[in-house]
């Protein structure tokens, strides 16, 4: 059984097709990288998986259950970090972390304190005073402090500095070592390269390639057989192909 499985998923907003026949699977214990340019449909896919948006057609299952109908049941075993973290101006970071964790399970105090210290967050400050990076830390700490089976991370490090980004990688590797599954949408290709077992590339609502990094590099080989030597180069080739260049 896959941890999550998307089949022929299409999502339309009016006339605009945000997702077009998307197919994806994430296996147990796997870190799956989901990459693509802004507006390609990464966040929309995740929101369908979370039951925030309803699929226009096709199916999205998590733990074998329907993402829309069984959302509450599924969420008990998921930890999610959104790309754009919006918090309550009047609550402190510490309060929000406790709230987020407790809406799933009992919180683990030691874990929480370790993470707050590691990510250098001042949990006594009101959220209105937090920068984007600090708001992201709140969501990350809440996610890592939870004991979930599947972690859905949507561009979780876009506001973090490189050192914090490194801590993030460490924590994801921890999850991987303890057999957890992760869906990681990211722009930061070095992160994907280091963490992900398999990668899906989405452009303009279409998943154009799925596979291990090596497989992706092979498929993007130039006419002279030269493989792209970085994720950046790989990505640019796909991008040019999709733009018809």
């Amino acid at each position: 059984m896959y941890m999550l499985e998307i089949e022929n998923l299409t999502k339309k907003f009016g006339k605009f097709t945000a997702l077009n026949n998307v197919n994806l699977q994430v296996e147990e214990g796997e870190v799956f990288g989901y990459v693509g340019p802004n507006g390609a449909g990464k966040t929309t896919t995740i929101r369908v998986l979370l039951g925030i948006l309803q699929a226009t057609s096709g199916t999205a299952n998590v733990f074998g259950k329907d993402a829309w109908k069984d959302a509450v049941e599924i969420h008990k075993r998921i930890a999610y970090v959104p790309g754009d973290v919006n918090l309550w101006a009047n609550l402190t970071g510490g309060e929000v972390i406790d709230l987020f964790v407790s809406l799933r399970q009992k919180s683990d105090k030691a874990k929480r304190e370790r993470l707050i210290e590691k990510f250098e967050l001042d949990p006594t400050k009101k959220c209105r005073t937090y920068s984007k990076g600090n708001r992201q830390k709140v969501a990350l700490i809440a996610a890592f402090a939870s004991d979930a089976d599947l972690y859905i991370l949507d561009e979780p490090t876009s506001g973090l500095d490189p050192l914090m980004g490194e801590f993030f990688v460490e924590e994801v590797l921890n999850l991987k070592n303890s057999g957890k599954s992760v869906l990681l949408s990211s722009h930061i290709l070095s992160e994907v390269e280091r963490l992900c077992d398999r990668v899906g590339v989405i452009m303009k609502g279409n998943v154009i390639k799925t596979g291990t990094l090596d497989e992706l590099k092979q498929s993007a080989a130039c006419a002279d057989g030269k493989l792209p030597d970085s994720m950046e180069e790989l990505f640019m080739r796909y991008y040019k192909v999709s733009e018809g260049v």
Partner: peptide
């Protein structure tokens, strides 16, 4: 304002 998502993505119906 995008704050309901933070709650509804957890196990709250």
């Amino acid at each position: 304002d995008g704050r309901a998502e933070g709650i509804l993505s957890r196990s709250v119906s």
